[in-house]
Design a binder for these strands. Structure first.
Lengths: 112, 112
DNA sequence: TGCAAATACATCGTATAACGATATATTGTT
DNA sequence: AACAATATATCGTTATACGATGTATTTGCA
């Protein structure tokens, strides 16, 4: 696991990216997907996941629909039009950010 | 400027990296260096900079020495032995983190 | 000469996130 | 029957960053 400090501010971007690539996902599915595709390095805890999802719904970046699965109600999230734009923008920003950081953290060549 | 969310948790790493590459630096110098070498994208505000520096001094990652410059006292910071180790470790962690993020945020190829 | 901008450091109060702990209920496995 | 996994939720605490603000010195230039 990376220090929680690093992850801060990236959760929303990661969730937007996942919803960009999938028509709809539910909370638990999102957390499992991140865990698996990061080799266990990113484990989004429930205490963080659900508040983020609720906030994004409030901001109209995602829409939620309840789907009855047996006796259980599952909450699916998908991107709104605003969410699609936000996803693109956040991912782009993160890529630029990574380029800058790579530049700044690149090993300094020892002078001859 | 990147959203402040993204920068959170990277300031300490950036400062450690700078001190790794320079024998000693003072606060204002650090903030100017970051600004210039990021094309203005990273502007570490004083309200963040000095508390971080004080905290790192408290944690014995850096040592501070006052140097008289004319009538002004300049505070130079340099890495301690523990700071050198911490720098290496933080930079390494950030690089691994970037690899993971690049993987997760890579554009998904459209299936044929 | 005078005044603005740059240099240099500092702190307080606020805002935002993230997270551990905890709770609830269902479903599948042993 | 008991336990693990599935699925969602919230409360209270902690960590961090930051805007605003304050002080003082030095440099540049009109």
């Amino acid at each position: 696991m990376y220090s929680s400090q690093l992850l801060k501010g990236t959760y929303q971007t990661l969730i937007l990216k996942l919803l960009q690539d999938h028509p709809r996902m539910y909370g638990y599915e999102i957390s499992q997907h991140l865990k698996e595709h990061s080799n266990g390095e990113i484990q989004l805890p429930e205490g963080s996941l659900y508040p983020i999802l609720h906030k994004m719904a409030e901001e109209k970046l995602v829409k939620m629909e309840r789907v009855q699965i047996g006796r259980r109600v599952r909450r699916y999230y998908s991107l709104t039009t605003a969410g699609v734009a936000e996803a693109t923008s956040k991912i782009d920003e993160f890529n630029r950010f990574m380029n800058t950081m790579q530049l700044l953290l690149a090993p300094k060549l020892k002078p001859l």
